[in-house]
Write a protein that binds this DNA or RNA. Structure first.
Lengths: 243, 243
DNA sequence: TGCAAAAACTTCACGCCGTATAGTTTCCTC
DNA sequence: GAGGAAACTATACGGCGTGAAGTTTTTGCA
């Protein structure tokens, strides 16, 4: 058998990449349920069954796509976080949240693919479709919570969360990254995730547009109150952390 | 043609009702994408095409189902709100939110049907699938905001929302019901909706279970901080509204 | 260089789906 | 009891995922 540089393996990798790429193109233009083996094959000048040489089932392909798209979301929010100055936690947190919504609005079909059920009979594998990317995003939000924690801690004195309340895989990333964040801070992170996910999700699925003219304004309001609820003021000024 | 009591019309209404009921049963057991005309017909001992005599397309049927299920959700949360004593706004608000999550957990497929994309090629009609039920739920949340407003108003002094930021249909229900609620209060209601929707949605779609062992505990935390963020304490005691 | 094995790919088939068209049966009304 | 409307069936088309079997292309080795 050829080594890792063999011509056959290179072609195989290229075809695999093309399948993924064509599938994403179909999704972008026709929504996630335009991802069909037959459509991909048609686009590539092949037969649908040829794809079975690269992915065992359609669900395997979809799982791969979810991982790819979810990783792109994680990249986007991580990059926004890294670019924002650590010296201003309020606007850094808001930047992260804006990047999250911005990515979703720019990739609505991707958002649906990750968080919804858009592909007809798709069944995610045990443990979720994209656990690593999910951990990455959650760890990112834990970063927001950690940045806010010196200010926010005072509001969580009576919180009774333990490490055992959370998934080990998540903690394996969060605790090393933010050693000062206690369990209550992780709970805060998950709640913030829920808040932002909900607003963005209502917007992407068209439920907000029926109620408000400007989801954008609503989200700006959310950002202002988010940092305020964390004990940080939003406009550059921020109080000293208590104690 | 027979009047409204004609035998023919009665049979027609019964068959229509049976179609809806069988569709909901299929959804409950096999998820929303088990709703197919052929499966319904099979269950009823008919041909799929016979259903076209009752619903013009499958999407029309799905729209009807969404309306029905969304109305059931609205009934559930309205009932919880009505049952909770108006004298204790904090626990009343928490009761509403618990009813919302409780309904979703009891009817996960219904939640997906209302808020997700579960039926393969479904296209909602112009103006949304179930605008009235959506208004009902939003108006319900506006009720939470209105109950909290005497306490929460102080946090929204710098809010610059106008009536024109919101949909007229929504305001047509909200303003008569809660004449003292200003535009900023409606924005607050939509944000609360987003927060709760997000947490419940992550849970229903299995994204939370990968991160935390007990979504229930997280939601309890959310409830506590929700009323606190509105300026009301959660444990029976509440401060006088300011001013 | 020739040849067998393996990999890549096609063809055909099955059972699902929504839905259009045309034909049949059932029922109500006059 | 006959005409007509309403309810329903039969057949068909193109779409889907996927399994089985067959064909072509490429590879590695004698």
């Amino acid at each position: 058998m050829g080594g890792t540089g063999g011509r056959r393996e290179r072609l195989r990798a290229e075809t695999t990449a093309e399948i993924r790429q064509v599938a994403l193109k179909l999704m972008a233009s026709g929504g996630p349920d335009a991802i069909t083996l037959r459509a991909i094959a048609r686009e590539m000048g092949m037969t649908a069954n040829a794809i079975y040489g690269y992915f065992a089932t359609r669900d395997d392909l979809v799982t791969t796509l979810i991982n790819e798209v979810y990783a792109a979301l994680a990249d986007a929010v991580d990059a926004a976080w890294a670019d924002a100055p650590a010296t201003d936690p309020a606007s850094r947190i808001q930047t992260w949240a804006r990047a999250f919504r911005g990515w979703a609005l720019a990739n609505p079909e991707g958002f649906r693919l990750i968080y919804g059920d858009p592909v007809p009979g798709y069944q995610a594998p045990e443990g979720g479709a994209a656990p690593n990317a999910a951990y990455r995003v959650c760890t990112g939000i834990a970063g927001l919570a950690a940045a806010a924690w010196p200010y926010a801690e005072q509001f969580y004195a009576d919180s009774d969360f333990q490490w055992s309340d959370f998934d080990g895989g998540l903690l394996g990333k969060v605790r090393p990254a933010y050693p000062d964040l206690p369990p209550a801070g992780v709970a805060l992170a998950l709640r913030i995730w829920g808040h932002l996910h909900g607003l963005v999700s209502l917007e992407i699925y068209g439920h907000l547009r029926t109620q408000t003219i400007s989801p954008d304004k609503l989200f700006r309001e959310e950002l202002a109150h988010l940092v305020r609820s964390l004990g940080i003021d939003s406009e550059g000024y921020r109080p000293e952390p208590p104690r």
